[in-house]
Design a protein around this nucleic acid. Sequence first.
DNA 1: GATTTCACGTA
DNA 2: CGTACGTGAAATCC
Length: 571
Amino acid sequence: MGPGDLVAVVVAPGVGLGIAGVGTGPPSFVDAPHPVAALATVATVEREIGPRWVMWSQATALDLVRGGTRVARSWDVAAVHRLLFGGWRADPGRVWGRLHELQTDDLPAVGPVDLFSHIADDGDPEDPVRADGYLRPDWLAGDWMADPARIARWAGVLADVVQLQRGAVEVLAASDRPAIVSTVRSESAAELLCAELTVDGLPVDRAAADAMVATYVGPRPRSDREAAELRAARDADVLRHVPATTAWDLRSPGQVKSLLRSVGIEVPDTRAWRLEAIRDQHPLVDALLTWRKAERVLTTFGYGWLDEHLGDDGRFRGEWSASDGAAGRMTASAGLHNMPTDLRGGVVAEAGHVFVRADLGQIEPRVLAAVSGDIALARATQADDLYAPVATELGVDRATAKVAVLGAMYGQTTGHGAQALRGLQRTYPVAMEYLEAADRTAQVGTDLRTYGGRLVRMGDGAIGDLTDREARSQAAARGRYGRNAMVQGAAAELFKVWAVTVRARGHALDARIVLCLHDELLVHVPEEHGDAAATMVDDSLQEAAARWSPMRAVRFLAETTVIRSWAEAKP
DNA sequence: GATTTCACGTA
DNA sequence: CGTACGTGAAATCC
């Protein structure tokens, strides 16, 4: 065994490990009932050899990290499955079935009688593979942990699966997506990073966070009764603008609409941007908008939110996914990705530490230049502000150029951007044709594949009975979805290469990524290494771009600052 | 009780 | 009739 060789590992907490070299011999069981002792084996192999660990999914990485063992490299079977076949579900039964070209729409399940019961009963129960070729549902449900022989066998199944995946990746690489080979590595490492983010959490200063919340909803109520009184007082602040003849519920959009009608304001809905436009029309509107802001903080990002997710160790925790949605972006729960910017003052580096905060500048148009191979647009990426040269080329002002470029990537076809769009088609025909080809492909329901090789499935939409108008509208929506997924997806791929490069290079400085936000990284580092870490983050972007980008000529840049609180970042 | 709608936060 | 996501409360559907 040598560095980078594939080694399959399965973790049965409290029982032991199954380990199998891929293509190098029979699987084995490591008997170590104590979780730390079990994982010490992984740690030793990691240190002495440094293989690429094959895992079924991020769940294994979580087991390892929670046991105090972190590994550098992996092959995450679930992540690779999502790349190859799209969608989100990537449990072992589905992965196995798909690789063996079995029907996976309705997988056999454990439990009461089902269509497969007659098959499930025959064959050797110690064989994870049934007579019909599917994996045994009881094994999938956890019976693989029943004894050492099964655990070892389960590692063997994983090793077989990765051989098949490797074959599928090579076929795809040889046909039209050479980048898939490196995407497999970066997406797998992103799963490791997500496991670490989930376990480590984000540094949040409880007192500072409480103070941020207090500016919107006042100090923490001392009792439920006080909370109810404060709530009533906030409601009354809005309702004093109307006669007290009706008991309006401000939390009900329907009633708010009626409430507005009672003062002569007619709106199709009560969304904030719509009310913002008529803020001066009646004092009620202004009061309502202020109330909404406080209500949002109170219900979603208030004291309850902090109590639920902020640990006594000063770390705020959510669960992280490395590739969600159509485009394969990272997602996080517990509101980590939609925390209002106004509350970022609660995110504070620990004593003796600082944050390095870095965000990619104008990532989507730069990525578009790269994946489409548009030489003219690549030339524009040389500028710090890409929209400036685009505006010059088009003979329009910067704002118009920006709206046009964003509109092209999002599929906007109306409004002021429409005129400039024709200029874009003249000046950057390769990039625009790339977007339009994606649009056309998606419109007819054909699957797409991003530059990095992720399958974007288009087949899921309902076809049903539609009027011509509805059908056209749905086709157009699919077109926008498809063209955006190609850009957003490629941007997510580059972002993850950057993030996992920072993860790897950061070790020497004790720098840890604590937040990923689509185009932004927050890195926590001992303060004496702050400047060095900032340089490392910038260097990592150049390294990532060199590895990822199909075009050397495309320039990527990050704005990087050393800060103590996330609020110090420019908005 | 589960699902959908509306609303709003981030990129 | 630009995109993607997560969350909470009310409305709606079993």
